[in-house]
């Protein structure tokens, strides 16, 4: 029997959650005994070619490309996990939600105190995905099966969750792994 496939995506986050995935350290060797990694920034596979058991999503959606990737994951994965606070709640990128988009862009590219942009050009290439009016956590766009909190969630949190899912047991994390004060 082939091993279940795991895919991961980094949307609007800082990549810190993916660094946390790598923090499982040598246990990654145990992990690849039982799963294969499919589409993921870790192995740079760009498109889904087969159905995956688990999709791990870092980051919320700040632009249309994020939305497209997330919807693609929903189509191709049996279980989707929101991994970390940006995916579950929008996180730091969502701080812009109280400010109109135009003001954000102007501050970033024109008015900011450290900006040098004599021509006052805001980047606008068709390669650049359009930004959403507001940054959205993943569950506002597709159904999410599990949410793992943390900024980032610890490697142990992911380890416990993956092991439970692969063993078909309830994801019942010990309190220490989901408490942050």
């Amino acid at each position: 029997m082939s091993k279940p496939k795991v895919a991961t995506a980094a949307l609007s986050g800082c990549f810190g959650c993916h660094m946390s995935i790598l923090d499982i350290d040598e246990r990654i060797l145990d992990l690849i005994e039982v799963v294969d990694f499919h589409k993921s920034p870790i192995n740079d596979i760009k498109t889904f070619t087969e159905r995956c058991a688990i999709g791990i999503i870092e980051g919320g959606c700040c632009n249309e490309e994020n939305v497209a990737v997330l919807q693609d994951f929903r189509k191709n994965c049996d279980i989707l996990i929101s991994f970390g606070d940006c995916a579950t709640m929008g996180g730091v990128p969502a701080l812009r939600n109280g400010i109109p988009l135009k003001e954000c862009l102007d501050e970033a590219y024109i008015d900011g105190p450290t900006v040098h942009n004599p021509n006052k050009v805001v980047p606008n290439d068709r390669e650049l995905p359009l930004l959403l009016n507001k940054v959205r956590p993943c569950q506002e766009i597709v159904k999410i099966d599990y949410s793992l909190p943390g900024c980032p969630p610890s490697a142990d949190t992911l380890w416990e969750a993956l092991n439970a899912l692969l063993a078909d047991k309830p994801v019942d994390l010990p309190y220490e792994l989901i408490k942050f004060d």
């Binding site: 988009l101 359009l130 009016n133 766009i141 159904k143």
Partner: peptide
């Protein structure tokens, strides 16, 4: 399909479309 039915991508892109003109 398990997409969120209330999410409307076009409604989410109005500001960006107005700013970028594309």
């Amino acid at each position: 399909d398990r997409m969120e039915l209330s999410f409307d991508i076009n409604a989410e892109l109005t500001e960006a479309a107005a700013i970028t003109g594309r």
